[in-house]
Simulated assay, not measured.
Amino acid sequence: MHSILDNTPDTSGTLFVVATPLGNLEDMTFRAVRILKEAALIAAEDTRHSRKLLSHYNITTPVISCHEHNEARVAEKLILLLQQKKNIALITDAGTPCISDPGYRLVSAVLPHDIPVVPIPGCCAVAAGLSVAGLPTDRFLFAGFLPRKVSHQEQAIQALADQPATLVFYESPKRIRPLAERLMAILGDRQACLAREITKLHETFIRGPLSSIIARLDPHIPPKGECTLFVTGAKAPEKLSYRDLESLIQDRVAVSQQSTADLAKEISQQFHVSKKQVYDTILKFKP
């Protein structure tokens, strides 16, 4: 068995960022269990919540609370312990810390002190859900939790409209249906997958167009459990040959009342071609 200090400097302790199960306790890795047992201290998002996991694996390491409201303050104490060559394990309620979970402030505070920060990989709702969503996986964009204010949320969705990667959103059960409705209104009725309660007893995957997912969500009774929504990215824009582009521009010039600059901007954005190329071509056909 390797020691917790293998391959880490002995000038300070190490901060281990430890992934924990999303729900099913059997998803804990052997390495994660060992790290939690050997650490001097465990920094947990919710100490009461984590007790179930720690008790299941007979982990008796002392635990300290480290969540979004006290993270900056607790970081100072943890840095002092790390500088005293104490190893600390960071865990959150479920999944991988720092991924829409507490941990970023602690990690960013630790790094300037040349203290090693080591990931202990494991569960992550993004990877777990994407692997079975049935959507393209060659590239994806993790959007996490969008702003709650409707206008800000709509702006965020609009900014993703042309993104070709599969989109991944986290959302609470109460707001998942309105989110799906706004996504469909702005992005169109794209193929999607709603993952709920991943790895838990009532694990559910709803696959199909956004419209069919919305139809299966009761507007009055929200589903139970955290939700991850995967949505197909934008299709690649249709490519026009130069001859087809010229023909299209000629037709637009004949009927458009827009200025040359505005028309060039509109066509270049619509067909993803050079604005200068479109502008120069418009001038050829303008009387």
Rank of each mutant, 00 (worst) to 15 (best):
M1H: 12
M1F: 11
H2G: 07
D6E: 13
T8M: 12
D10K: 15
D10I: 14
T11R: 13
T14Y: 01
L15S: 03
L15Q: 03
F16E: 08
F16P: 11
F16K: 12
P21G: 03
L22M: 12
L22R: 03
G23F: 02
L25G: 09
L25V: 10
V33E: 10
I35D: 01
I35E: 02
E38I: 02
A39F: 04
I42G: 03
S50P: 07
R51Y: 12
K52E: 11
K52C: 00
K52I: 13
L53I: 01
L54D: 00
Y57C: 08
T60G: 12
P62T: 06
S65L: 06
E68H: 14
E68F: 05
E68T: 13
H69Q: 11
N70A: 13
N70D: 08
V74E: 09
K85H: 14
K85L: 07
L90M: 14
D93A: 05
A94R: 04
C98K: 05
I99F: 11
I99P: 09
I99N: 09
G103D: 08
R105F: 12
L106M: 03
L106A: 08
S108G: 03
P112C: 11
D114V: 08
I115P: 08
V117W: 04
V118N: 01
V118I: 15
P119N: 06
P119W: 09
A125E: 04
A127S: 15
A128E: 05
A128I: 00
A128W: 00
L130S: 12
A133T: 08
P136I: 06
G144C: 04
L146Y: 00
K149D: 06
L167E: 02
L167Q: 00
V168D: 05
E171W: 06
E171F: 07
E181W: 02
L183Q: 02
A185N: 13
Q191I: 02
R196H: 05
E197V: 05
T199E: 01
K200G: 09
L201N: 05
F205L: 15
D218I: 08
P219I: 11
L229C: 10
T232Q: 15
A234F: 01
K235E: 13
E238G: 07
E238W: 00
K239S: 09
D244C: 06
D244Q: 14
L245H: 04
L245N: 04
E246M: 15
Q250T: 00
A254R: 12
V255M: 08
S256H: 03
Q257G: 10
S259F: 09
T260I: 13
T260K: 09
L263N: 11
L263A: 08
A264L: 04
E266S: 12
S274Y: 01
K276Q: 13
D280T: 14
T281I: 14
F285N: 11
F285Y: 15
